[in-house]
């Protein structure tokens, strides 16, 4: 792969991760959000793949495969199945409405640019310049956690935070060692399963409520 096509492919893939994060903020339908999660997982896998191919690192390539399988396929499938017939429902009254969320996302991207630049210059290279994108994904994921009510969105926010961390790590170094990447991916998978079961239980117990109504549990 030539230098310029490598850097544009990497930028494209990392950009796709960030754009799908922003899309989560924008979208309200649960079905489309789950599709976005799949896109983000595949884009993250692509980042790892491109970096692995560029550095000819078999460990990174194997990690890319794990990411593609777990984050690009298994988790979105699980999310889709757990939401069951409910995928048509929407986030109807978010804590922060969509236009304001988009503005906030823009602000968060700027924060990420300012704070991530230092790290980027430390790393050098094309990959280093893209570090702010990882940070921005992380921050937007966290924002989704704070600003959305539906349990599915909460899980998606958590996944975004993890993807942001993974992207930053891939870009900063040669990624995690393969074993750690494997472990982290399965941790996230397990976390998602537990959260899904938990939200299912909540739905059975309390009906289709948002988690803010759990305030009653406060002592």
């Amino acid at each position: 792969m030539s230098g310029s096509s490598y850097s544009s492919a990497l930028t494209l893939a990392a950009g796709a991760v960030l754009v799908s994060a922003v899309a989560t903020v924008w979208l309200a339908s649960i079905r489309s959000v789950i599709q976005v999660v799949a896109v983000q997982g595949i884009a993250l896998g692509a980042v790892a793949m491109i970096l692995g191919a560029h550095r000819s690192d078999p460990g990174l390539l194997a990690a890319a495969v794990v990411v593609l399988v777990v984050k690009g396929t298994v988790i979105p499938l699980l999310l889709g199945r757990a939401s069951g017939g409910n995928t048509g429902s929407r986030e109807s009254r978010p804590l922060v409405n969509v236009p304001a969320s988009l503005v906030a996302s823009a602000a968060l991207i700027m924060v990420a640019l300012v704070t991530g630049r230092g790290v980027g210059t430390l790393v050098g290279s094309t990959a280093g310049a893209l570090v702010p994108m990882g940070l921005a994904t992380l921050l937007i994921g966290f924002f989704v956690l704070v600003a959305r009510r539906r349990p599915t969105f909460q899980i998606v926010g958590l996944l975004m935070v993890d993807n942001g961390i993974a992207l930053t790590a891939f870009l900063c170094t040669a990624g995690f060692p393969f074993l750690i990447e494997l472990g982290v991916s399965f941790d996230i998978l397990l976390g998602v399963v537990v959260l899904m079961v938990f939200s299912q239980r909540l739905r059975i117990e309390f009906g289709d409520v948002d988690i803010d109504e759990l305030q009653e549990l406060h002592d």
Binding site: L95, L108, V111, V114, T115, R117, G118, L135, L139, F142, F143, L145, V146, A147, R149, I211, D212, L214, Q215, E216, L217, H218
Partner: peptide
């Protein structure tokens, strides 16, 4: 301040993260 809202608790963490990031940059 802590009224039992999960979102409020998450927001505390979120703002703390941003403050730390900005302070370190």
């Amino acid at each position: 301040v802590p009224n039992g809202s999960v979102h409020r608790y998450l927001a505390f963490g979120f703002f703390a993260l941003i403050v730390v990031l900005v302070a370190l940059a």
